[in-house]
């Protein structure tokens, strides 16, 4: 494949490991994943999904969810607000209809699971674990309005317990995806690590809104909506930098990543891998182009692997490099 020859000819190693201590570690051939609900095997006509490090499915819940009424997406400066309300057919229909396609995927499939309680997540992990072609779980935590997280302490306790409960149901890598609008994101990340997470996906969409100034109503079918796209990139980058210095498990950077430069910034901020999301809506080839450019751009900066530049921008690393 052309992709392989580029990687080899540049002599740059792109592989990264998620879940080094888990029962079934996940070796990604490159650090570029498609973010949850943006690209799937059905997107093959638009991009070469097999060139990616893997992809995260749209979130699935225990029971079918109808999702929010429309409109579900509006544009914002350099991004979108999206409020699909987790429309999905429920885990049993997913297992019956969609999971058989996973084993055909030549790249890792990470299933995003969502729910309101730790029991929901445990149930989902238990039902899905062991399906051929499955490589890991990403936990899409309940929103802060779901009736928990009254204080930073309670929030962390909830996340630790939730992760631990899922851990008890699967040996596959668990990625805990955190939104930025938590009480204490470093505390939450530490709690996920203690609960047995293998990686922190950072960041989930912060909540935003848009109001029609003539009617006073939300322009979306819900009040709050997930903000994504380049609009959130600097915020995400900062949190990746911050959190990756407080946990010892890998961080997967997410937030408006659209180019090779964005990707390198996130890796240098401390991300071991990245997810490309909204950028795929604008340019379906964005993620694949990043993969293609990575070896050349890493080599141009005087390095030979992705792993070498993870956290290059951390003060401890900068200090060590100066000496």
């Amino acid at each position: 494949m052309a992709m392989e020859s580029v990687q080899v000819s540049a002599g740059v190693r792109l592989d990264v490991l998620i879940g080094a201590n888990s029962k079934e570690p996940l070796l990604l051939k490159n650090p570029v994943l498609a973010a949850s609900g943006t690209v799937g095997l059905e997107s093959t006509g638009l991009l070469n999904v097999e060139a990616l490090g893997g992809f995260v499915t749209a979130s699935v819940t225990r029971y079918p969810r109808r999702g929010n009424p429309g409109p579900r997406v509006v544009e914002t400066p350099s991004g979108i607000l999206h409020a699909t309300g987790l429309q999905n057919p429920g885990v049993h229909r997913l297992i019956k209809d969609q999971s058989p396609t996973w084993k055909r995927s030549t790249v890792p499939v990470i299933v995003s699971i969502a729910g309101d309680t730790a029991e929901d997540f445990a149930y989902l992990a238990g039902e899905i674990d062991g399906i051929p072609g499955l490589s890991g779980f990403e936990l899409n935590l309940p929103g802060r309005y779901a009736g928990h997280g009254g204080t930073a302490t309670e929030e962390s306790a909830f996340i630790e317990n939730l992760t631990y409960t899922v851990r008890s149901r699967t040996g596959l890598p668990i990625l805990v995806k955190l939104p930025p609008d938590l009480w204490d994101i470093c505390g939450a990340a530490g709690a996920a690590e203690r609960g047995g997470a293998d990686a922190i996906s950072l960041i989930n969409s912060p909540t935003g809104m848009k109001i029609d100034s003539w009617t006073g109503r939300s322009e979306l079918g819900a009040f709050g909506a997930g903000l994504s796209g380049p609009a959130i990139r600097p915020l995400a980058l900062w949190l990746v930098w911050l959190v990756s210095q407080t946990v010892s498990i890998p961080v997967v950077g997410i937030g408006g990543i659209a180019s090779i430069e964005d990707t390198l910034e996130f890796i240098m901020a401390g991300a071991s891998a990245v997810q490309v999301g909204t950028a795929s809506f604008v340019d379906p080839k964005a993620a694949v182009e990043i993969v293609q450019r990575l070896p050349v751009e890493i080599e141009a900066r005087g390095f030979h692997s992705v792993r070498e530049i993870v956290g290059l921008a951390h003060p401890a690393r900068l200090e060590a490099d100066d000496n």
Partner: peptide, 16 residues
């Protein structure tokens, strides 16, 4: 409808 992913993945463009 406003369309985002164009491949049926994102459920942004739904009609009731």
């Amino acid at each position: 409808r406003r369309i985002a992913c164009t491949s049926g993945v994102c459920f942004s463009c739904v009609v009731d």
